[in-house]
Design a binder for these strands. Structure first.
Lengths: 137, 137
DNA sequence: CAGCATCCCAACTGATACTG
DNA sequence: CAGTATCAGTTGGGATGCTG
């Protein structure tokens, strides 16, 4: 295998880099936050525990599938706890752990940045788009 | 149209919520950060300007398509600037704007959180997985 | 009430080849 | 060197119907 095409070499590099990225804590976290529903669930629970259907109602538009999937992932990561009360009908409460609350704090920092700078971003976009429309014409 | 199925009602709610989310600065920002390559590009440029192919090399495994796509999006958002020098061959430099640098700072905050807490997350995962394997057995 | 299993479609990704 | 155009593969997410 002395001969390796450029494609093969690049693919290997990609694989190694993927492994590197997956091992990087920052990217693991960004992967989590990137999930459309994670930030919403964490924000919703920041003010206190909630039941499954309450979450479903507060986060309008989420399908049961995604809600469960998100909650399970966050439970696995130790961000929240799942408390089942075996009554009839069943009752399930979700609550943030201390780790979860600390994540909520980080989320606030992100929120602050976003609200402080979003205006600049929008202005930049308008400038960019305006400049581009001239090209099209 | 007095009769609306549950599915239709939910879909409408989803659409409205999508619109709401898209208008929310925090989610706009998270959408950007969530992009696999954005954080890498911003980090790479945090220490100084770079040329297109330098970025391609530093961020091993990125395809030209994704690199260009990422750079264009960030340029549009005012995160970085694109400087073309019409020599032969062409030379293009990318550099973070002040806004971009402030974003890099936020990225550092995320990184700090990740590195501080990733251990807890991993422990939580092991506990969760261990508890689950018992179920399987 | 809380959740799982299944199917399915759309969107994004990445490889490849070509251009100014 | 710095991209663009095109195409195929993979995945994510929603709809739906059913269970403890």
């Amino acid at each position: 295998m002395a001969t390796m095409t450029a494609a093969q070499r690049r693919e290997q590099a990609r694989r190694e880099y993927d492994a590197f990225i997956k091992g990087c804590p920052t990217n693991q976290l960004l992967d989590r936050l990137s999930d459309k529903w994670v930030s919403l669930v964490v924000s919703a629970l920041a003010s206190g525990p909630m039941r499954y259907s309450d979450l479903g109602r507060k986060i309008a538009g989420v399908s049961p599938k995604m809600l469960t999937q998100t909650l399970r992932a966050l439970e696995r990561d130790g961000i929240l706890t799942r408390q089942v009360t075996p009554s009839v009908p069943v009752r399930v409460d979700y609550e943030l752990t201390p780790l979860g609350h600390s994540l909520a704090l980080l989320l606030m920092a992100v929120k602050d940045w976003a609200e402080t700078h979003i205006e600049q971003v929008h202005e930049a976009r308008e400038r960019y788009d305006a400049a581009n429309e001239e090209q099209a014409a």
